[in-house]
Write a protein that binds this DNA or RNA. Structure first.
Lengths: 101, 101
DNA sequence: CGTGTAAGGAATTCTGACACG
DNA sequence: CGTGTAAGGAATTCTGACACG
């Protein structure tokens, strides 16, 4: 789906206003691999509304004393869980398939 | 609803890419009261995804040989129709209300 | 009327670094 | 580690005007 939420079209100044975070913080979270803006030909960063939500989420975790390292690992765990779910599903499908033959 | 669609957060360069229209055209359509971007403190224009759709619509009408003046009048007619519908609805409600007393 | 363009200036963003802690 | 800041430069945008038609 080409939703508006994940279209990278917002520059950092406006992102800063929307999230309340300084541009410095936003660029730093990118450096720590927590956020992945696109770039214009000229090199200007472009973010999506999804990124706004992600940044607010990051900000909350930082307030809770979490380090960028922890947050990144947490993101990966989420991915792992998702993968796990997919694998379980695939496993069930395979089992059902195998029963047929 | 605070939808993403009507949040004015996109600068003119990206709007130009999304719509395929030159910045000159986009600014001109604003001058002709067809589009209404917001501004940053510094004066930079900010548009929404809704504006993107509106601009594409305008571009189509211009291609059909319509003039900005016609398009603006057309917009107003749409509003009038909407108002008309609301008025009719209100009229029916009033009629129903009057029957009760 | 609608749009391209060159012009000069202002606002916005970028990177790398130093600072504090 | 996370973030502020001053620095210099580059990309982006702005306005008013001239041009063509």
């Amino acid at each position: 789906m080409s939703s508006y939420k994940d279209k990278k079209v917002i520059t950092i100044g406006i992102i800063s206003e929307l999230t309340g975070l300084s541009e410095r913080k936003i660029r730093y979270y990118e450096e720590r691999k927590l956020i992945f803006p696109e770039r214009t030909k000229g090199g200007t960063r472009k973010y999506s509304f999804d990124d706004v939500e992600r940044l607010v989420d990051i900000a909350n975790k930082m307030e809770d004393g979490m380090q960028t390292f922890d947050i990144r690992r947490m993101e990966q765990k989420k991915l792992s869980k998702k993968e796990l779910r997919e694998r379980m599903l695939r496993g069930q499908l395979n089992a059902a398939f195998n029963m047929r033959k």
